Computed example of a mutant assay.
Amino acid sequence: MSKPSIREVLESYGFDAIPDADRWVKVRCAFHGERNASASVHPKQNRFKCFACGMSGDSYDIIQAQEGIPFSEARQRYGTGDEEVRGGVHRQSGRGVHSKTRTGRRTFRSGIR
């Protein structure tokens, strides 16, 4: 199973079109609404990082945070990279929380459902 493209995942959650580049590209983060670019995406590495809200990771990390589902379900739903990522940004007020993943990596979990 291949990962879904970070470009397709982010664009499905309201990001402007992201060029297919082999470098970090500055983008405006759609997860917290802003005027200036505070996030970066590396399409070839399938990575995303927002320096304002702390959201970061690969396509599965973004899907998990946005849809509130575990990795196994995100992989089952979107693992081939063929399925369209559905959804949108649904935020609740509240502060984010840091948590550890199964691999021990720290991730930022905000009040996103």
Rank of each mutant, 00 (worst) to 15 (best):
M1Q: 12
S2T: 12
K3R: 13
S5R: 00
R7V: 08
R7D: 04
V9Y: 04
V9S: 04
L10W: 01
E11H: 11
E11R: 09
S12N: 09
S12E: 00
S12T: 10
G14F: 02
A17R: 10
A17N: 07
I18E: 05
A21M: 10
V25C: 01
K26A: 13
R28K: 12
A30H: 06
G33F: 07
E34C: 03
R35Y: 10
R35H: 09
N36A: 15
N36E: 14
S38H: 09
S38G: 12
A39G: 09
A39L: 00
A39W: 02
S40H: 10
H42L: 00
P43D: 03
R47V: 07
F48H: 02
F51A: 14
F51Q: 07
A52Q: 01
A52V: 02
A52P: 03
A52C: 06
M55T: 07
S56M: 07
G57Q: 02
D58S: 09
I63V: 11
I63L: 05
Q64Y: 00
A65Y: 03
A65T: 04
A65S: 07
Q66V: 12
E67T: 08
G68K: 04
G68I: 03
I69S: 07
F71G: 03
F71T: 00
S72W: 07
S72N: 05
E73L: 10
A74N: 00
A74L: 07
A74F: 04
R75M: 10
Q76G: 12
Q76D: 07
Y78Q: 01
Y78R: 05
G81M: 02
G81P: 04
D82I: 13
D82W: 12
E83L: 11
E83P: 10
E84S: 15
V85K: 01
G87D: 02
G88L: 08
V89Y: 06
H90K: 12
H90E: 06
R91N: 13
R91P: 03
R91T: 10
Q92I: 08
S93L: 13
S93M: 13
V97S: 11
V97H: 11
H98D: 11
H98C: 12
H98S: 14
S99M: 11
K100V: 13
K100I: 11
R102K: 13
R102N: 09
T103I: 11
T103L: 15
R106V: 13
T107H: 06
F108K: 10
F108V: 06
R109V: 06
R109I: 03
R109Q: 11
S110G: 14
G111E: 14
G111R: 15
G111I: 05
I112T: 11
